[in-house]
Write a protein that binds this DNA or RNA. Structure first.
Length: 158
DNA sequence: GCCAACGTTGGC
DNA sequence: GCCAACGTTGGC
């Protein structure tokens, strides 16, 4: 029996990779994550069919901008072995890769981006990792209820 | 641009 | 194994 669908939030700085880039690409391998906690989720927990909230950080406005879907589960991130890549890791061993990524496809852009300020104002969303003090994780689990609320907010008429 | 919070590194 | 120093993240 298949595990039930799970939900995630992926952070990205739009200057580096934005929803526009994803719209252009259709799907992309989510590489460059260099944090062990996030790595573990990408390698072990994120599964095909899971939902991903795409979040733009360090920009104005900071917001969840799109819904995505995982189309390929965790596999070694090739950039760790590429000396020319900014995410190159000299200590990574091809026989035992250190960093992983997944492939995601754009599902839908939210008609109305759900801003960080809006998320903070929602009691239902108060437990999201995103709004915890000092939280810097770029890959975060999201509950089904949180997902539903974000989707509802993002589709609501202005 | 600032700086608090965090994760990692390295000396001991 | 501790912990200070450092580099990075990311909201403000």
């Amino acid at each position: 029996m298949a595990a039930s669908k799970r939900y995630w939030l992926f952070k990205t700085e739009p200057d580096t990779y934005s929803v526009d880039d994803l719209a252009r690409d259709g799907a992309t391998f989510w590489d460059g994550v260099r944090n062990y906690q996030a790595r573990n989720m990408l390698r072990d927990d994120v599964a095909v069919g899971d939902g991903v909230l795409l979040y733009h950080s360090s920009t104005k406005p900071m917001a969840v901008v799109a819904l995505c879907e995982v189309v390929e589960a965790g596999s070694p991130d090739p950039t760790q072995f590429d000396a020319g890549d900014p995410h190159y890791d000299a200590g990574a061993d091809p026989a035992a890769p250190r960093w992983y990524g997944v492939r995601i496809a754009l599902g839908e852009r939210l008609p109305r981006p759900v801003t960080l300020a809006e998320i903070k104002a929602e009691a239902v969303l108060a437990d999201m990792t995103l709004v915890q003090r000092g939280s810097r994780l770029s890959i975060q689990p999201v509950t089904a209820a949180e997902w539903r609320r974000i989707v509802a907010l993002g589709r609501r008429r202005a």
